[in-house]
Design a protein around this nucleic acid. Structure first.
Length: 507
RNA sequence: GGCCCGUUCGUCUAGGGGUUAGGACGCCAGGUUUUCAUCCUGGUAGCAGCGGUUCGAAUCCGCUACGGGCUACCA
């Protein structure tokens, strides 16, 4: 019988969740939904030293903002908890003991300092020290010490770790769902620590045990884990739980927009784009990182952009809703090579989603910013304003930049436009135009436009000679939506007022 | 250094023995807009290199180069 698909996103609460992590969560989520399976959130906090307060809440809030809501996990309930590894501490020791009893692991009493020393020595000789089948027989462990000695040390409470005894010369071959056949020879692998002296398991043990206990069928994680896959496979074997072990898929990494290496948290500051989904502020360390949410990205845009980093549908469709992503997603269509992140494309996605929103929706999003500035406009009118400027916006935040003149008269006039478009006779013409505007009773787009045309024709003035100056007087620059629309929205009195002000200020 | 993974326009990618190597972002040009932006149309630009297999290679194989990951009592 086919097992129900179950996948997990298992971040460490060591800081804010990176966008690469969000993408891993996304692909897990899509895979789960696609196969009517479960998506779990497990917090891997086995390293007490690196725990950062607030990180867990940040992870949960990020997933929620992105619409990647887990079916089970920390903060989401479920029957196979606890889902926080620090709360599962007693479970792991049993498995570690089982490994020792069956000869798959051993106690190691070498101190961290001793091992550091060995590493240093090796380095001095341009070598690399590795705790493995070549060196383990010369070190202080239950393989080399007498059983009495080992028992005595254990008895006395001496610190120890439990290491995996990597078998000799075995080829571990696995069919990765993304990368195909990957193989390793165990002679190249070292005896990894499975259980630390503080009583906590390392990632490797905890991960394997929990994936087993939580009935995980597919492990979808970043490429940085590819090299520990053989260890994990061997662990499932040694624990006698290979039958139900998950299949592996390793995602390509997200690389810096420029330069070398994978995208890191500092890149955002340097190049002016967010690396994290949400704003992160750590008062303690003073570190602060901008977030996609606070920068004005829509979660749909963020997700759509992320989905295309390392995956493509194979069709020419570019825009995908979450449901469409679920429908189209397939691990076999995930690319193997690292993807360089392009902030420009992220913006382009956001523009698209912004244009899709109705003026009413955007108005609701714009209102808070206006109120903060002490502006409380009529909603219906604001909706029209938003409708006329939205197509020039990429972010909700752009609305103000593109439409501020609807709420306050320009304080200065674009110099270059003044220089090139404000001719000696411009003031005189505008003077006449204000007088003409006074006579327009029906201050609506069509009538204004119609009467204005008649006026201009009668005067035999070219449109070009006055349109830009009028715009300049109203807006302060030479850009903006259709002029008659601005005229109507501003209202007759305000329009006349601003033109008169401009005439007196510019000359 | 060792092990593992990868390499198609500047970037994200499609294409998996016979294609004018397709799309998207960016960029450039033209059109629309009496402005600017949008929008439309067009253009620019790529199979890392070398060998091999084959009638035929971007596609399969090998080597080289380059890129990436791992090499902690971190995940």
């Amino acid at each position: 019988m086919e097992r129900k698909v179950r996948v997990r996103f298992a971040p460490s609460p060591t800081g804010p969740l990176h966008m690469g992590g969000v993408r891993t969560a996304l692909f897990n989520y899509l895979f789960a939904r696609k196969h009517n399976g479960d998506f779990l959130l497990r917090i891997e906090d086995t390293d007490q030293n690196r725990y950062v307060p607030g990180a867990e809440e940040y992870i949960i809030e990020s997933l929620k903002w992105c619409g990647l809501v887990p079916d089970e996990g920390v903060g989401f309930g479920g029957d196979l908890g606890p889902y926080r590894q620090s709360e599962r501490k007693p479970i792991y020791k049993k498995y570690a003991d089982h490994l020792i009893e069956n000869g798959f692991a051993y106690y190691s009493f070498d101190t961290a300092e001793e091992l550091d020393e060995l590493r240093k020595q090796a380095e001095a000789n341009k070598q690399v020290f590795s705790y493995d089948l070549h060196t383990r027989n010369g070190l202080k462990n239950s393989l080399t010490l007498s059983s009495e000695d080992v028992a005595a040390r254990l008895q006395s409470g001496e610190h120890y770790v439990i290491r995996f005894k990597m078998p000799e010369n075995r080829d571990v071959v696995e069919e990765d769902l993304i990368r195909g056949r990957v193989s390793f020879n165990t002679n190249q692998l070292d005896d990894k620590v499975l259980f630390k002296s503080d009583g906590m398991p390392t990632y490797h043990l905890a991960n394997v045990v929990d994936d087993h206990l939580m009935n995980i069928t597919h492990v979808i994680r970043g490429e940085e884990w590819l090299s520990s896959m053989p260890l994990h496979i061997l662990l499932y074997e040694a624990l006698g739980i290979s039958e139900t072990r998950p299949r592996f898929s390793h995602l390509p990494l997200i690389l810096k927009p420029e330069g070398k290496g994978k995208l890191s948290k500092r890149d955002g500051d340097k190049m002016g784009f967010p690396v994290f989904p949400l704003l992160w502020n750590n008062q303690e360390t003073g570190e602060s990182y901008r977030g996609y949410r606070e920068d004005g990205y829509f979660p749909e845009a963020f997700i759509n952009m992320l989905a295309f980093l390392g995956w493509s549908p194979g069709t020419e469709q570019e825009f995908f809703s979450m449901d469409e992503l679920i429908e189209s997603f397939d691990l076999s269509r995930v690319v193997k090579s690292g993807a360089r992140f392009d902030p420009e494309k992220a913006k382009w996605f956001n523009r698209h989603y912004l244009q899709q929103k109705s003026s009413a929706e955007l108005t609701a999003l714009f209102l808070p910013a206006l109120k903060e500035k002490g502006i409380d406009p009529d909603t219906q009118k604001l909706e029209r304003i938003v409708g006329s400027i939205k197509e020039r916006c990429e972010f909700v935040n752009d609305l103000w930049e593109q439409g501020h003149y609807f709420f306050q008269a320009p304080e200065s006039y674009d110099e270059k436009t003044v220089r090139t478009k404000w001719k000696p006779d411009t003031s005189e013409k505008l003077q006449a135009i204000t007088s003409f505007f006074e006579t327009v009773d029906d201050w609506k787009y069509e009538p204004i436009k119609e009467k204005f045309s008649e006026f201009m024709t009668a005067k035999e003035w070219g449109f070009g000679s006055v349109m830009v100056p009028i715009r300049l007087a109203l807006v302060g620059s030479s850009s903006g939506p259709d002029l008659f629309e601005i005229l109507e929205l501003l209202g007759k009195d305000e329009t006349i007022d601003r033109i008169k002000t401009a005439i007196s200020k510019i000359q």
